[in-house]
């Protein structure tokens, strides 16, 4: 009788201890997912032999302003080997089109709220990480920004600014026609 009671008690305890959600070890649940997201082509203008040359790079859908930001990161090793260079400093702020990628950091879900003023959706504003007023930026910088921006579908006007309280400088790619070379793919 006593042995049976002990057995029953053990069973009940075992059941009770199995309650709740138990922890587990690390378990593999399959291979890594394959990257098969859609890719778009972006055009970025770099210098080659002193001339402005477009470079086609892969981009992300829904991130139209990415080429402008990529300008600030400079050329890749491949592009450098092909003779491309860039002297642009880092690109600080890019506004104008709805693009979540312009806000690198920040809490999740905050992007839509800080989507910039969309009043002039055909105009983008680019600020460089520099204190030099836009009017004094080297023409090559201005040309790179203006042509890269105008290569983005839907962009008509480009404003260069450093947000120092003064109005920015509107530029067009056509203003720098003298710097343009023939198109090359990287």
């Amino acid at each position: 009788m006593r042995r049976r009671a002990v057995a029953a008690l053990v069973a009940v305890l075992a059941l009770a201890s199995a309650c709740g959600v138990p922890a587990t070890g690390i378990t593999e649940v399959g291979p890594l997912p394959r990257a098969e997201g859609p890719a778009v082509n972006n055009t970025v203008y770099f210098l080659k032999g002193g001339k402005l040359m477009p470079v086609v790079r892969p981009g992300l859908p829904g991130a139209p302003l990415m080429p402008l930001r990529q300008l600030g990161h400079g050329v890749t090793d491949n592009e450098r080997r092909m003779g491309f260079t860039s002297t642009l400093p880092g690109v600080g702020i890019v506004t104008g089109l709805p693009d979540p990628s312009v806000h690198d950091v920040g809490p999740a879900g905050a992007q839509t709220q800080t989507t910039p003023e969309i009043g002039e959706s055909d105009k983008v504003t680019v600020a460089l990480e520099t204190t030099i007023p836009p009017a004094q930026w080297p023409r090559v910088w201005q040309a790179q920004i203006a042509c890269t921006a105008e290569a983005i579908p839907g962009v008509e006007k480009v404003e260069l600014n450093i947000f120092d309280g003064r109005p920015g400088r509107e530029v067009r790619c056509a203003d720098y026609r003298d710097l343009l070379g023939t198109s090359v793919r990287n």
């Binding site: 394959r34 997201g37 859609p38 790079r57 992300l60 990415m66 930001r69 990161h73 990628s101 690198d104």
Partner: peptide
């Protein structure tokens, strides 16, 4: 799988 493209854009890690 849906969001990561096979050719990852340069310097787009943050985005």
């Amino acid at each position: 799988a849906r969001l990561v493209p096979a050719r990852v854009p340069t310097d787009a890690g943050r985005t």
